[in-house]
Structure formats: structure tokens, C-alpha cells
Design a protein around this nucleic acid. Structure first.
Length: 104
DNA sequence: CTGGTGACTTATC
DNA sequence: AGATAAGCCACCA
């Protein structure tokens, strides 16, 4: 367990319902602006153990990044359930839903 | 230990 | 604007 991991977990846990964050933002807030991959790995790895809202994390385009259809569908449903309108391509309107902790 | 990969991002061409 | 390269670091073979 590294400090980076703990930060990432804390950041993801702080994402309010109905809002999303990008991997890049999380990585930057955690201390490594280009460590988006680690965020992904941590998320994938810890979401199950820490009950993290991984469905509130999307890529830089504001789209669902998952490759697995089942998980993709699960994220889609979770977002819709929180009031986030997801496009048919899994694209989310970042201008509306992107949560910036600094601008909170 | 070495090497390759990944639910990604940003900068350059 | 689409394609390429480099960066990041944990995990698995």
C-alpha cells in the first residue's frame, strides 16, 4: 500500500453522487499528474475491497472507459441511477457533471 | 530480477 | 483533428 494509493482511494471516496471525475484529475490530485494508469489499476483492484464508487470515474473524454460490456453496463446503470445522463456511446457531459474539488 | 501490459493522459507531428 | 510517442507505476508471467 503506497501513499499514492491511499490518496487515490480518498479522492474517489470524496466524489459526490451525481458527479464524475477523470483519471487525470485524480492522478494529479494524488501527486502524479501522469499516473492515470495507476489510478486505473488501484481503482480496479481496490473498488471491490473498499467499496469505491468506481462508476463515478471516467476518462478524459468524459466517456466510460471500460472494455468489458458487463461492467460497462453496470457503470452506465449506476450513473443513470444517480441522475447522470449518459449518452448512447457512454459519453457524459463533463461541463455539467465533472466535479472539481478545488472549485467546490 | 527482467519484461510486458493496462478501465489512461498529455504533448507533438 | 487523427495518429504517435512517452510517461506513470503496480501486477503477473
Amino acid at each position: 500500500m503506497t501513499p499514492f494509493t491511499e490518496k487515490v482511494i480518498g479522492i474517489i471516496r470524496s466524489i459526490p453522487a451525481g458527479r464524475v471525475m477523470t483519471y487525470g484529475q485524480i492522478a494529479k490530485l494524488a501527486g502524479s499528474p501522469r499516473a492515470a494508469r495507476q489510478v486505473v489499476r488501484i481503482l480496479h483492484s481496490m473498488s471491490r475491497a473498499y467499496k469505491l464508487p468506481w462508476h463515478r470515474v471516467v476518462n478524459a473524454k468524459g466517456a466510460i472507459a471500460i472494455q468489458d460490456d458487463e461492467s460497462y453496463n453496470e457503470q452506465w446503470m449506476s450513473l443513470e441511477a444517480e441522475g447522470v445522463l449518459v449518452g448512447l456511446h457512454g459519453v457524459i457531459d463533463l461541463k455539467k457533471y465533472l466535479w472539481e474539488p478545488d472549485g467546490e
